[in-house]
């Protein structure tokens, strides 16, 4: 009887695992193969193996500069977003300061207003108050980035803050720790997973986005994403593919970091509802 039941269970497993096939085919066709094609183009020229795209990337100071500037802008955006978002998420998640869950939804709601439209709105406002992108391209770009990525920082931080073990902080302050020590020793270590996913959700997209910097700096600042886009537009598929591959490499590294810090795969963008 029991072995019969086991057999039955195995049969249903096999029956249902077949359902995964269309999904698997989709993943292979439209996610894996396109990436392989990018790698193919990165290392060929006119159908033959060539490292000229790689060589032209590694020897070009202009390209390195774009990469470094993008990383710098991304780093700055991430830090500013964290500085604004961290206390905000703490206040929102703490019942002592806020009981209103509508506020959390309000912080995420800008994501439902078209982001190109929001970027245009930001530029119009900045122009009105005299911060013209053409004159202060770097500052304008930074403002646009922070505006756009702040919700992505608040969300993962908020969901980690909800799970905080408050007794740890209370114990620390009872034992005579000052607020700074409480923060460093009791609060910050608990929120590292949130900080890591917030960083990943800001850093990578900032580096590779091109609409925000195009619009807000009035084409005066080129980020890595802009560069890939322009090269591709000019028809240099090999160069564009190689740069996309560099981007992929950075993605790979961040995925690895994320797996290390975030054991549970929920969190961040998935917890919108």
């Amino acid at each position: 009887m029991k072995s019969n039941k086991k057999k039955e269970a195995k049969k249903t497993r096999r029956f249902f695992s077949v359902f995964g096939i269309p999904y698997a085919v989709f993943l292979i066709l439209f996610i894996i193969i396109p990436i392989l094609i990018i790698v193919y183009y990165a290392f060929t020229e006119n159908g033959q193996f060539s490292i000229s795209a790689a060589a032209s990337f590694f020897t070009s100071w202009a390209k390195w500069k774009v990469l470094l500037i993008s990383m710098f802008v991304a780093l700055q955006t991430t830090i500013i977003c964290l500085l604004i978002g961290y206390p905000l998420a703490y206040f929102l998640a703490n019942k002592k300061f806020n009981k209103n869950t509508v506020l959390v939804t309000l912080f995420i709601a800008p994501m439902w207003i078209n982001f190109v439209l929001r970027t245009g709105a930001t530029r119009d406002l900045l122009t009105w108050i005299g911060v013209k992108g053409g004159r202060m391209p770097y500052f304008a770009t930074l403002v646009g980035m922070v505006y756009n990525y702040l919700p992505f920082v608040i969300l993962p931080l908020y969901s980690t803050m909800l799970k905080l073990d408050k007794s740890l902080m209370e114990a620390a302050s009872d034992l005579g720790a000052n607020p700074f020590q409480v923060f460093i020793k009791a609060l910050a270590p608990q929120t590292i997973p949130g900080i890591v996913s917030a960083t990943l959700m800001t850093f990578m997209p900032t580096m590779s986005s091109y609409v925000i910097s195009d619009v807000l700096s009035e084409n005066m600042i080129t980020l890595f994403g802009n560069y890939i886009n322009t090269e591709f537009g000019l028809g240099s598929w090999n160069t564009a593919s190689f740069m996309a591959m560099i981007m992929l490499l950075i993605v790979g590294i961040s995925l690895f970091i994320n797996l290390k810090f975030n054991k549970d795969k929920e969190g961040g963008r998935t917890q919108l509802w």
Binding site: S209, A240, A244, N258
Partner: peptide
């Protein structure tokens, strides 16, 4: 989920 949108877009377009 983690990939840069432009990389996905570019790879699909190339394909």
């Amino acid at each position: 989920i983690v990939n840069a949108e432009i990389v996905m877009a570019l790879s699909l377009c190339v394909m």
